[in-house]
Nucleic acid binder design. Structure first.
Lengths: 260, 260
DNA sequence: CGAGCATTTGACACGTTTCAATCTCTGTGG
DNA sequence: CCACAGAGATTGAAACGTGTCAAATGCTCG
């Protein structure tokens, strides 16, 4: 897999935007991603220079750190996920850290804001992408509030599988996952110890096995039922994709749609 | 307060966008909000016609309903909050319900998508607004995962105060809140019964009183400390606001910035 | 071979839920 | 004008899920 420019990346899977063809004057579209090693800090809570990030490959995590030393992982951005919105006088409120080897496109805030003025489709594209991130957060909120540790963990592992398969790094059988049990705990609002117990139970109940960096589905259907998982909230739903009508082809997916 | 068109609304507080001045061809900008009575369903989970909503006044709630009958309130949109993104083949994933008397601007999806093509600032504006909603959701996720019932409840009441004051319906002393304890529970991931106990404790500890639809701050500083509340995540952070430079005036607020 | 980190397991504590009942208010019809 | 119904709020007691504390195991890398 050769390196892609941001322009090419936005046009290919999983985003598949029509944008970028005739916008030769937008410099940052022709940049290549930057690479980070595991646990490298891509953007620190409090950083002042604003950038927008688009994950090209690998796993990252965005976390909010609390005064008491706890952290909450808001999400684990994967291929095709956007994060960060330009800020002008302050810094980012979240920390972005590499989990595995990651490559990310970094777009500086000011050029981005300038490009928006002349390229309508760019704003629409980003609005859609951010709306998708928001939909993911809303589902996680639901999970954390109304599902048990077991359901919640199953739900998250299914979500990851779904999101990864859009980028081609997951199959029906499973995927590689560089998250530690501690990371999982910080995503799911549990303790590492309880995550451990929960993963054991999921294994004993013959739904998934997650050991040594590898998630293997055993009975995906049973798991989906337990978790109440419906991938509808994960759809990429580009505003500007269909230039013609309201009828838009989506690649072999469910009926539900991503909304706010 | 006379009725405003969407155009006027976007230009005034709390959003204060520069957008709309010379876009006479965008019809929906000159529409008036629509009114709903308490508990009226504005948009149902599963609805097919896509619209974007912008709350002009009053309280609403967006909720995701689970198969088991539970609901999770993702947020309680207030004056200036946007929700919904056009979908093309499916329906909204969330239900939008009026809590108090609400007025909302409703923009049909297709005209909106069309307008985006010709008005760069529109996409940027919406991207910013959605990013703010996302930031609110991220903070709630943090709250729900890492703060106790007491801290979480205090945090939410402070957040509401802050958000309302941007729209002028809250003071340092308190505000009117039409949410029931049951609603609060569905926001905070608690049971109604525990919300009741928690509110009592906040009253006994002399931080806030929330009785018969009225929130009264007793010791806001103590409360802010308990909750670990920092309003940074609530800023409106418009991409397209400052036409000139990176230095943007924000009205008497903290240093932190809203990010994804 | 030992250091350090991730995982695993057990026992116990605690916060929150669940179940059950009572109470208060508000609006409504007799 | 009072009785009543229904929704929301309040309180108590017991059950349960998850956190906390403590310790051992396994793995990887120098």
């Amino acid at each position: 897999m050769a390196e892609q420019t941001l322009r090419q990346f936005l046009q290919s899977a999983p985003i598949g935007s029509a944008f970028g063809g005739d916008d030769g004057d937008v410099d940052f579209l022709d940049t290549l991603p930057r690479f980070y090693s595991p646990s490298a800090v891509i953007s620190r809570q409090g950083d002042t220079n604003s950038r927008i990030f688009i994950v090209a490959s690998g796993w990252a995590s965005i976390a909010r750190h609390l005064p008491n030393g706890n952290r909450q992982i808001i999400d684990t951005p994967l291929k095709g996920d956007v994060l960060g919105m330009p800020s002008s006088d302050g810094g980012s409120i979240n920390s972005l850290v590499a989990v595995s080897e990651v490559s990310v496109f970094e777009v500086p805030g000011l050029p981005f804001a300038k490009a928006l003025d002349h390229h309508p489709a760019l704003g629409a594209l980003f609005a859609s992408m951010i709306a998708r991130q928001h939909s993911i957060a809303a589902e996680r909120l639901t999970s954390v509030c109304r599902r048990s540790a077991l359901e919640r963990t199953a739900h998250f592992l299914l979500e990851l599988g779904e999101r990864l398969s859009a980028g081609g790094t997951s199959t029906q059988l499973g995927y590689d996952c560089p998250l530690t049990q501690h990371d999982l705990a910080d995503v799911l609002g549990l303790t590492q110890i309880h995550v451990n117990r929960t993963l054991r139970e999921l294994r004993e109940r013959e739904m998934v096995s997650f050991r040594s960096g590898s998630v293997e589905f055993i009975n995906r259907q049973k798991m989906t039922r337990l978790a109440g998982f419906d991938k509808g909230y994960l759809q990429y739903n580009l505003l500007n994709a269909p230039k013609k009508s309201g009828i838009q082809k989506l690649p072999h997916t469910s009926t539900r749609q991503t909304i706010l």
